[in-house]
Design a protein around this nucleic acid. Sequence first.
DNA 1: TAGATTGTTAATCGATTAACAATC
DNA 2: TAGATTGTTAATCGATTAACAATC
Lengths: 211, 211
Amino acid sequence: MDKKISSRQLERYPMYLNHLITLHNSGIINTSAPKIAKALDLKTEQVRKDLQDVSSDFGKPKAGRDVALLINDLQNFLGYNQLDRAIVVGVGHLGQAFMNFDGFKEYGLEIVEGYDVNPKIVGQKEGNKPVYHVDSLQESIKGKDIKVAILTTPIEVANETACLLAKAGIKGIWNFTGAFLSYEGVVIENMNLASSLAKLSHRINNKTSKK
Amino acid sequence: MDKKISSRQLERYPMYLNHLITLHNSGIINTSAPKIAKALDLKTEQVRKDLQDVSSDFGKPKAGRDVALLINDLQNFLGYNQLDRAIVVGVGHLGQAFMNFDGFKEYGLEIVEGYDVNPKIVGQKEGNKPVYHVDSLQESIKGKDIKVAILTTPIEVANETACLLAKAGIKGIWNFTGAFLSYEGVVIENMNLASSLAKLSHRINNKTSKK
DNA sequence: TAGATTGTTAATCGATTAACAATC
DNA sequence: TAGATTGTTAATCGATTAACAATC
């Protein structure tokens, strides 16, 4: 279990899980690395190795792997059955979308409140969760055991806001601003829309079908 | 210019651009690979190579590189000064966020209209753009020169909707649904929130500060 | 000039892929 | 049994990093 998992590998696990849940919902009991590989356009060997690294049981030659067990193992590994508490910082359109989206709970993340500076939004509710002023953040989140901040502010204030979050003891920042952020002691995951779009555009214009 | 650019490399270009624009706005005229590398926590050699691959001019030993020229080269390379037309398919909270966000224009993407099945939304405007019924999509987009679809439907209908988009002649799908999609002749870029969150959580819980 | 930075060629590293004996 | 699938060890591949002479 303490084997090192690369970030690319980590990205694949939710894909496996999604696929396996689809199988499970169709009443399928067993599957195998080759079948999964085919469905997700990966190589058999890669799937086999990935699953070995997180599963509590061995696969069985010929029979393959138990779908329900694998789902359970993946959910455990990804921490989906243990809710982390999160805040949304920057309750613009994107922030609002997140506050109204309950689906993150399935991924082990519970959004409990939002923060903004806009007086029209501060004091209101969004997705049934309160929105506070950013100035009160440090005080407000004390004792609430909040681990993660979803950062959806304008890019111009991303850095200073991240700094504030670091001081407030946030453990991880899920950064949607497009700014490059780096803080000692805080894990930062960049969801860079511009980078993703750059890949899409480049592949469209160069007609290279593969990654 | 027809050198092969890897997807990892492609992801870095918007980061360079963002950094260079910040420099430019501060009135800084020149920079160098080592300085950029330091600012973005990359290696000097990597920055040098990346910039070589897209820039129209050589850097100058000692002096480094011209910020304004580099910005221009990057914008050209990324296609930011040539607008592609896009639609939003699935105008829920996330889709609405995109329809109200004008920032994609800076990235060469113009959202012109939305599609949904919800009668409360169909026929209305969102972010000043019309929302049509998905059933009318194939007919409606004809002749509008729409290249890209931003897919923000529920995951359950992602596959069938993607199929519809492929038939309608869409060139690229920017997939936010979390489903694995694959269609012959259509470029698909997956913006997998679950994968990103998996990386964040894993690093928080394992205290590994780096990617 | 001296030294920072360049472009380019070679070495390293890590992830993916291939090979293969073991087994239900 | 026969054959699909397994886990594991070795080979390949591609991207990152290091090395170095050239130069403003």
